[in-house]
């Protein structure tokens, strides 16, 4: 059955209203404050560490993102941890709050499809995160200029922009998950708890479980163990299993674009590095190619979760 009119009618109105709500909300303010303060602390440590070798590194600006100094993790690691929190914070009550406020049937009685409401809310959430991350990115560039005194090169800007795009895709995964849970659970508290549980599982538990499962599938070879090496089969399985976690995909993709010397994201075999100039940076395009499968993985994950939410929402009875 073909529907009349456009599914996107009303998306703009929903987007603008939700974006305005997000930006002005106390919840968003607190999340932004948390991210900015933590990221700034990580950045400060990175700047202190980098001041020692300003003239030596051709990609000094990128180091700002990746260098860590104990006890703080790197700026990228901080974002990898906090972006899911921000996305879950924005998405866990996207739909169920409309049920609870009893606004859903009134809004859907206007000449729009449910698609418009869902898409408008999702895009507004993503735009909110993108705006915050862009502001943070500009802050990093600005502080780098002030404290390191070295202007960023064109490739550094391109690579850091690629990182920004990957970070937005990464946020998209968690926002889709949070939105899906806000459709499944009528209680925002339940949706938030389940989302945080999944995030903790994939961030903390899964990296520990993946090697154990891999070893069960491909038991380690004692000959490799005797040489202090990982068994290739076990290592590959571990890597593949770890890639089920969006955190891992994000970590790998950002490593590829922010560390120009990264040549591969999997186990390295001797025949792969034959003829390679060790430590030489790859061109930007090739780094993007290395990060591409992980980026596509993040996009695919976003699409799958969004579609699941879309289907559930379309079938949901709207009474409130």
């Amino acid at each position: 059955m073909r529907r009349e009119g456009s599914a996107f009618q009303g998306v703009g109105a929903v987007f603008v209203k939700e974006l305005s709500d997000n930006i002005s909300s106390v919840r968003m303010l607190m999340l932004e404050l948390l991210i900015v303060l933590t990221a700034m602390a990580a950045l400060y440590e990175a700047i202190v560490a980098l001041r020692q070798n300003t003239a030596e590194d051709p990609f000094l600006l990128l180091r700002l993102f990746t260098v860590s100094q104990a006890p703080l993790p790197s700026f990228v690691a901080v974002l990898g941890f906090l972006i899911p929190l921000m996305a879950i914070g924005l998405g866990f009550d996207l739909i169920n709050s409309e049920h609870n406020r009893r606004t859903l049937s009134r809004i859907l009685a206007q000449p729009i499809y449910r698609d418009a409401l869902l898409l408008g809310k999702y895009l507004a959430g993503l735009a909110t995160i993108a705006i915050s991350l862009t502001a943070l990115w500009l802050l990093v560039i600005g502080l780098g200029l002030i404290f390191l005194g070295v202007p960023p090169g064109g490739e550094e800007i391109a690579r850091s922009l690629a990182f920004l795009v990957i970070a937005v895709f990464y946020a998209g995964v968690w926002l889709s998950l949070a939105m899906l849970l806000s459709i499944v659970f009528r209680s925002p508290a339940t949706a938030a708890l389940v989302a945080l549980g999944i995030w903790l599982f994939l961030t903390v538990l899964w990296p520990m479980l993946a090697p154990a499962i891999a070893q069960a599938i491909v038991p380690p070879d004692p000959r490799f163990a005797a040489l202090g090496l990982d068994t290739p089969g076990t290592a590959i399985w571990t890597l593949q299993l770890q890639r089920f976690s969006p955190n891992d995909l994000f970590g790998e993709a950002t490593l590829a674009v922010l560390s120009p010397t990264t040549r591969t994201l999997g186990p390295v075999f001797l025949d792969q590095i034959r003829g390679a100039v060790m430590g030489a940076p790859l061109p930007f395009g090739q780094s993007v190619m290395i990060a591409w499968p992980q980026t596509v993985g993040l996009i695919a994950c976003t699409i799958v979760l969004f579609v699941a939410g879309y289907v559930l929402f379309q079938r949901q009875e709207v009474r409130a």
Partner: peptide, 19 residues
Amino acid sequence: RQPLQVKRRVGYLPDAVGF
């Protein structure tokens, strides 16, 4: 089949309307 046509012309005030 034509929900937008209907919703353009029909106003709905649900039970315990929310804003």
